[in-house]
Each structure stands twice: as structure tokens, then as C-alpha cells.
């Protein structure tokens, strides 16, 4: 399975009006990685994404997806491996109902009608939108739209998911749901976004690009906590890492800081507990009582731990 690589080698691309969007970009991503692409507006993020799918082809240099070199002939094949999720779900969901939309890709792959229905069912189940199947996209909320957009892509069972600003249309709660969803995918993920907190949560690796070239590449925590590096590239620290100044004057004392950190650490506890319980149910339905029990205990412990966090935060006040 390790052959699902994405490799850019010295890729150059100029738009017809002369703007150089990619300027000798090189990047190698291997199977199962989750990579965040960050950079200021006009840094070449979108152009980079357009290359993963063959909408744009490199003018010089080469791109390899899996074991195929990307060119005019192979791009049809490459598109089956790379699922591209667009920024605006209204552009992504072009069919009149959710079902038709999710079925669009599998049908184009030439699957049988029954197999198509299965694929649609699985994909909608994965994103938790089974009930929406017959709805037209304009009856969905923003969060539902982006979940269905993801379903429409994963229904084709791609190896690599490429996303452009996946959360830019979402309210905080839907954004959080999306992040949880993405964390559970085992696909190779490439996410371009200005939402650095999202990158921090979802991606282990982070690539900073500027003027069509890779400026820095490394583990997300390292990259995204480097204030100087970020500011040089017109970015700023993720909100969760910013030490905000709440008191009217002077520096935040250590206790207040701890209070914020505790909040950050405990942020996902309740969601995790819920996930453990869900899996416990699944394990039980599969006949693995032992696993189910253990998972339930983990869930309980998590809830208990969350209470401890709340207590600690209470003491910090």
C-alpha cells in the first residue's frame, strides 16, 4: 500500500497572464499521511491542488500520483485515485438530490446500479447523513452540505483526499464536526487552509508555501507554533496557541494561562467519550463483548477525567 505517493518534482506553472503560480515546487507525500498546506493568499495553494487532479498540468517538472506520471493521458485514471473536495459545496453538489449527487461518481466509474446504491449508502453513513438522501442540496444546512460533499467524493473510494478550505463556510459547531470526521479518515489527506487550528487538529505534517515554492515542511505542532516563521509568511499563530491577553493591563499570569491550556486540553473529552461509546456499540453488535466493555470503561474514565479538568479550571479562577 505504500505506493500511494504524491510526488511533485520541480513543478513550474505560469498562468496565461504571466503570473507564476508554481515556481519549482517539490513535495513528497506518502501513504496515510495527513498534510496541511498553508500560505498567504496567492502563494500558490490552489494552483497546487489543481495539479493533484490534472486540471492543470505542469509546464515543467513532473508529478507522480501512485505509480503513474500525471499527464493528459493518465489524468482520467489519476482522478479515480484523487478525490478533490472544493471550497464551496454549492459548486461540488451539482445534482438535484443528495442521492443523485453521491451516486454521480460511482455511476461514472461504471458500477452496477446495486453496487452504486451500496456505495452511496456507505458514503452517506460514513459522514452521518443517511437521512438526507432524498433531499435537494438547497434544503441542507452548511454543515450538511459540506458533509455530503465529502460523501460524494469518498463514494468513489479514492486513496487520496484533497481539500480546499473545507471549513470556510461552516459555523463553529459544524466545523468541529467536520474536524472529527476528518480525523477518523484513514485516507492520505492533503488540506489547504487558512484555518490553522483545523490543520493543527487534523494534520500531522504541515507545509508552508510562498511564491510557489515550499518554504518549510515539518510536523504541524512545530511549524504552527513558530511565530516568526508564520509571520514572515503573512500567517499568524493558531488561535488555540495564542496567549491571549484578557486582563485589562499587563501580562497574563501563569494561572490564567494554565486555565486556558486546561480548556484546550479538555476540549474534546466529551466528544471522545461519545465516540468510544459508539464504537462499544459497534463492537457489541460484532459479538466482541470484551472489547465493548473495555471501551465503555474507557468512556467512563474519560468522563471522569473531564470532570477533573473542570475542577482544575474552577480552581484556576
Amino acid at each position: 500500500m505504500s505506493h500511494h505517493i504524491v510526488e511533485f518534482q520541480d513543478v513550474h506553472f505560469h498562468y496565461p497572464d504571466g503570473t507564476a503560480a508554481l515556481n519549482g515546487l517539490s513535495l513528497r507525500i506518502t501513504h496515510g499521511e495527513s498534510v496541511g498546506i498553508v500560505g498567504a493568499n496567492g502563494s500558490g495553494k490552489s494552483t497546487l491542488l489543481m495539479h493533484t487532479n490534472g486540471f492543470l498540468l505542469p509546464q515543467s517538472g513532473s508529478i507522480t500520483i501512485g505509480d503513474q506520471k500525471l499527464d493528459k493521458k493518465t489524468r482520467q485514471e489519476v482522478r479515480k485515485k484523487v478525490g478533490l473536495i472544493f471550497q464551496n459545496p454549492d459548486d461540488q453538489l451539482f445534482m438535484p438530490t443528495v442521492f443523485d449527487d453521491v451516486a454521480f461518481g460511482p455511476l461514472n466509474l461504471g458500477l452496477s446500479p446495486d453496487r452504486v446504491r451500496e456505495c452511496v449508502h456507505e458514503a452517506l453513513e460514513t459522514v452521518g447523513c443517511l437521512g438526507l438522501s432524498e433531499k435537494p442540496p438547497h434544503h441542507l444546512s452548511g454543515g450538511q452540505k459540506s458533509a455530503v460533499a465529502i460523501a460524494s467524493v469518498i463514494a468513489m473510494q479514492p486513496d487520496i483526499l484533497v481539500m480546499d478550505e473545507p471549513a470556510s463556510h461552516l459555523d463553529p459547531k459544524s466545523r468541529r464536526a467536520l474536524i472529527n470526521l476528518l480525523m477518523h479518515f484513514h485516507h492520505t489527506k492533503i488540506i489547504a487552509s487558512h484555518d490553522l487550528d483545523l490543520i493543527l487538529d487534523v494534520c500531522k505534517r504541515c507545509v508552508i508555501i510562498k511564491e510557489g515554492r515550499v518554504i518549510a515542511d515539518g510536523p504541524s505542532e512545530e511549524m504552527l507554533s513558530n511565530r516568526r516563521l508564520l509571520e514572515e509568511n503573512n500567517l499568524e499563530l493558531p488561535l488555540s496557541l495564542q496567549k491571549r491577553d484578557f486582563s485589562p493591563g499587563g501580562d497574563m499570569d501563569e494561572i490564567t494561562k494554565l486555565h486556558h491550556l486546561l480548556g484546550h486540553w479538555a476540549e474534546h473529552n466529551s466528544e471522545h467519550a461519545k465516540t468510544y461509546r459508539d464504537w462499544a456499540k459497534k463492537a457489541e453488535s460484532l459479538g466482541r463483548k470484551d472489547l465493548a466493555e473495555l471501551l465503555l470503561r474507557i468512556a467512563e474514565e474519560t468522563v471522569a477525567m473531564d470532570r477533573l479538568f473542570q475542577d482544575a479550571m474552577g480552581l484556576c479562577r
Binding site: M50, F55, R79, G83, F86, D91, F94, F104, S152
Partner: peptide
């Protein structure tokens, strides 16, 4: 583009 990327 979205259609193409899904095999249109």
C-alpha cells in the same frame, strides 16, 4: 471541474 474530478 467538480464534475470532471468525479469522472464526468
Amino acid at each position: 471541474q467538480a464534475m470532471l474530478s468525479r469522472g464526468f
